[in-house]
Design a protein around this nucleic acid. Structure first.
Lengths: 330, 330
DNA sequence: TTGTATGCGTTATCAT
DNA sequence: ATGATAACGCATACAA
């Protein structure tokens, strides 16, 4: 375990002073150094396998090139591609991701934010946003979900268009008794999709009966199952708050002895990995997971570079993917 | 955005020297300070909302309480639960995870290792280990895969037992022409499972015909499809190198107009999320994903605390899960 | 264009 | 038990 080389080692190998080496190594200031010496330094760095000590750099510059990424649970299949997109986006700018899971627990989220801030994190990407979250004091971008506060940058999907196209499809097949197993209303995704459902039904001249809308307490298969079991009013189709809730609907239908899609059609939201391989294949609204993460990373980098820039809200387009889970009503 | 208080601010408020404040603040060294002054310092810290600057601490102590976690691709469904386990394990000791994906590219892996080491990462957990990787110079634990070098701690599954039980099941159903769509042989998982397949077939008195074993170039559905298409010798059952390869087998069988399990049985490995919801449900060897990550984190923390400790190799038990993808041969 | 000097905030090693 | 001092590695203002 020999200790890693410092900038001084590089400098002495290149026969220059440490300050010169620093200037040569940093792309920002490379112009202040002659090309010849710059190359010598770069080469010396390479042969020594030099990597700058970020602790020292952080101490000096007050930036860490690290972003905190906080999500509810990596095991929810929507998040891996998003996180992967974030990581690739951060990588483009030499940033890395410090990852944390909250399990939806606000306390744990606070804890994580504090711990990450203590580690000099330059900014945050949160996939945990609740609608009522306060505006943050460090550069922050919300992804997938957003808060009601208007001044926080966010990357979300066009929930409205997605739900409209789902209702449209079902209506065009002849469904009129359409139910909604909605997601949690404390999260923007659940809330927006529910609002969109009401609007879309209305604009198709379809009634939203009270018993035909239930609310899952979480975006999980289990909660979706309970929400689906609570549905009343003899629906012929269910629009679920997301894909996991839709899988819960599958279970509930099976338990009730109903067949999907013959008795009841089901539509999900997200097109999570393997949605196409469910039984039956899940009709769902595809969101661009990876691109969301990528875009969120870029937004954050922009925000870090210039914190006073106005807060963009990026809304990415979605696409309805029809699979075996929908059919005309009996 | 006024600048955060430093230890000097705390010290002057408590009317002590910065060094004393440091000793009082650090639980390790608190004993070297009188209880009275310690309390005064602690209180001062609290009223100022003092949080230590981790950059300075890192620079001084050369530790960061951060571990680098490097995996091939987060979108491969085996990794999210592993990473989640790692994160929880690290969290227990106040550590956090810096995450990086390599896409199986050695160059990118080197780059990531370097960049992370520059960020003072205390150690690494690698899920990318190739069999021929050299022994690392910083505390490192391999998870899921391991290298041939004996002195690197690792957490893996009992690949041997898993494959044996798969062969056992198929043999007991009457299969004799069993094929193997193996994983890449440069990775310990692919290699060990292939070796185990040969051994298990042998100990059941079954022949391993050359055409009945093919090798996927990667642990992906696509590569599995190609490996399955290359299989010859009229097999009635296929043991796949992992679940994604097994899904590739599903596609290949469908393309050949064969039905699983009526014409050909398929067994996977990993029991990745949603393996039970495939069509047909995938018979597979369940590995304890989350626990692997948890155990890897603990091993790493142990290793960091005491680098000279002998390198443990933890092998976790597996369990065959029978689902719809296997049946007796026609 | 390059070298010199200084400080970022903390903690380890002395000295008191 | 506490204070003084130095050093971690880097980046920058300033001098040459």
């Amino acid at each position: 375990m020999e200790k890693p080389p410092t900038i001084k080692d590089v400098a002495s190998l290149a026969k220059v002073h440490a300050a010169t080496a620093s200037r040569a190594l940093n792309p920002q200031t490379r112009g202040k150094v002659s090309t010849r010496t710059a190359n010598r330094v770069l080469e010396a760095a390479k042969t020594l396998g030099y990597a700058p000590n970020s602790a020292a750099r952080m101490l000096r510059t007050k930036t860490s090139s690290v972003a905190g990424v906080i999500i509810p649970d990596l095991r929810n299949p929507v998040f891996p591609p998003i996180v992967r997109g974030i990581e690739d986006g951060l990588h483009e700018a030499g940033y890395m991701a410090l990852l944390g899971n909250t399990d939806g627990d606000e306390e744990r989220e606070r804890e994580l934010l504090l711990a990450m801030r203590g580690r000099q994190t330059d900014g945050f990407i949160l996939a945990t946003g609740r609608r009522t979250d306060p505006a943050p004091t460090v550069p922050t971008v919300l992804v997938n979900r957003r808060s009601d506060a208007g001044d926080v940058p966010s990357v979300t999907n066009d929930n409205n268009a997605g739900i409209f196209s789902a209702v449209e499809l079902l209506a065009s097949l002849g469904h009129t008794r359409i139910g909604h197993a909605a997601g949690p209303q404390g999260l923007s995704t659940g809330w927006e999709r529910y609002r969109a459902f009401v609007d879309a039904m209305d604009s198709h001249g379809l009634a939203v009966e009270p018993g035909r809308v239930t609310f899952a307490t979480a975006f999980t298969e289990e909660a979706g199952y309970r929400a689906a079991m609570a549905l009343q009013g003899d629906v012929t189709a269910i629009i679920a708050g997301n894909d996991l809730i839709a899988l819960g609907c599958y279970s509930a239908l099976a338990e009730r002895g109903l067949c999907c899609p013959d008795d009841v059609s089901v539509v999900g939201f997200n097109d999570m990995p393997f949605a196409d391989r469910q039984r039956p294949g899940l009709t769902t609204v595809r969101i661009p997971h990876y691109e969301m993460g990528l875009e969120a990373a870029r937004l954050l980098l922009e925000r870090i570079a210039n914190p006073t820039t106005p807060a963009k809200r990026v809304i990415l387009p979605v696409e309805l993917v029809r699979r075996g889970s929908v059919a005309p009503p009996r």
